[in-house]
Every structure is written in C-alpha cells, then in structure tokens.
C-alpha cells in the first residue's frame, strides 16, 4: 500500500491510496486524477500516461526500460525525471511518492 501525490500543472494536488501491484497509472485512473489519459490501457503503447517523478523519488522508481524509453519519444516535453506511469508498479517502498502531471499529454 502506498500514498501517491499527483501534482497538477496549476499546483493543485491530490493524494490517492494505491494497492501494491497496481501501476501508478491505474491508481490515477481509479481515482480520476486529471491529465493521465492512458489511451492504451497500460500497454506501454501510447505515452499518454507521462509523469515527472519528484527528484526525491527518482532513485526508488528507477529508470525506464528500453521499451519505455522508446515510447517516451512519443511524449512531449520529456525530461530526465520523465516516466510512463503505467510502467511504475506500486510497492510499500513507494509510500509517499510524488509525481507531477505534465501540462499536456499530446
């Protein structure tokens, strides 16, 4: 179980509770977090679940796998801290995770 904070481009934020094993994208969709579109339903095939992982959490969430890096090419304004949220699995270690939702998912 982990509490995840989603921060919107306007600074507003929402804390959601996520079960272990679901993805950060699924947690966002379950709680209707705006700005996470996830058109492909988590198949790493659309890049519309793009988030920026807070600096303090980057080590814990790890780096994108090759397929995810490739898919990030289809996202906009990709940064060092960019991840596709459907590729981050929730574990106890991610309790307190903070991610930012980009201004646009394309």
């Amino acid at each position: 179980m982990a509490k995840i904070t989603f921060i919107q481009p306007d600074g507003s934020s929402q804390v959601v509770e996520a079960q272990n094993g679901v993805t950060v994208m699924e947690a966002a969709k379950l709680h209707e977090v705006p700005g996470i579109e996830a058109e492909c339903g988590g198949a790493c095939a659309c890049a519309t679940c793009h988030v920026y992982v807070d600096e303090a959490w980057r080590e814990k969430t790890g780096t994108p796998a090759d397929v995810e890096e490739d898919m990030l090419d289809f996202a906009f304004d990709v940064r060092e801290e960019s991840r596709l949220s459907c590729q981050i699995k929730v574990t106890d270690a991610l309790d307190g995770l903070v991610v930012r939702v980009p201004a646009k998912q394309f």
Binding site: E39, F74, F76, A103, K104, F106
Partner: peptide
C-alpha cells in the same frame, strides 16, 4: 474503432 489514425500534433 477510435476514429482515424492521425499524426500527433505537438502541443
């Protein structure tokens, strides 16, 4: 389906 496949427009 979900409509015509169309190139993504950078925002």
């Amino acid at each position: 389906g979900g409509g015509s496949f169309t190139p993504k427009r950078p925002p």
